[in-house]
């Protein structure tokens, strides 16, 4: 099965799930001839049909193209998968940095967290972990703090610092 065939299967399954989820939308007395579930169900049908078309198209293309020797094809598939796997893991790492920021920001507050985000992203993207990168991340964090909090007056998360420092101030 080709990649597009698998994509089609996944979307077909999603369309079915979406239809059942739409079927669970309650009917309101304010609904007209088309209920709140009407369009979602229609979209589920449309996606299902398109997914089926994608499957048929990919199978038809596979059938008419010239077959390659099995060993060479297997070799090509494996190497491209490995290369792609590294790329995907790298991308997942960026997402993980983002999630990490979201987990710590309620506690550390915006400024420290954004410094950490910039430091982690820069190092992950290839910058050397050292004083220079740390300084750039720190300056970046300070810049963003002044820009967003002081200049634009956006109440970014303060973290636990106000609670921790208020007894000292008080």
């Amino acid at each position: 099965m080709t990649r597009d065939t698998w994509i089609g299967v996944v979307f077909l399954a999603f369309a079915v799930l979406f239809w059942f989820a739409a079927d669970g939308i309650r009917i309101s007395p304010l609904d007209g001839p088309v209920t709140a579930a009407g369009l979602p169900k229609s979209l589920a049908y449309a996606l299902g049909m398109l997914a089926a078309l994608l499957i048929v198209r990919s199978l038809a293309i596979k059938r008419v193209t010239t077959a390659k020797p099995v060993a060479a094809e297997a070799g090509e598939d494996n190497s491209s998968d490995l290369g792609n796997l590294r790329q995907h893991l790298r991308a997942a790492g960026v997402l993980a940095i983002g999630v990490g920021y979201l987990l710590v920001v309620p506690y550390l507050g915006y400024t420290l967290s954004i410094c950490g985000l910039m430091l982690a992203t820069a190092v992950y993207a290839g910058a050397r972990f050292g004083a220079k990168t740390g300084l750039i991340a720190a300056l970046g964090g300070v810049f963003f703090y002044f820009f967003f909090v002081k200049l634009l007056h956006i109440p970014l998360p303060p973290g636990l610092w106000p609670d921790l420092l208020s007894p000292l101030a008080g």
Binding site: G98, L102, P106, L117, M118, G126, A127, F144, I154
Partner: peptide
């Protein structure tokens, strides 16, 4: 260097999106 540009853009995205509704859920 691209790493610093990427870091700056990532920070800008998160800060900008948060400024809309002040919601971490949005991020």
């Amino acid at each position: 260097p691209k790493p610093y540009l990427m870091a700056g853009i990532f920070a800008l995205i998160f800060s900008g999106i948060y400024s809309i509704d002040h919601s971490l859920f949005d991020l």
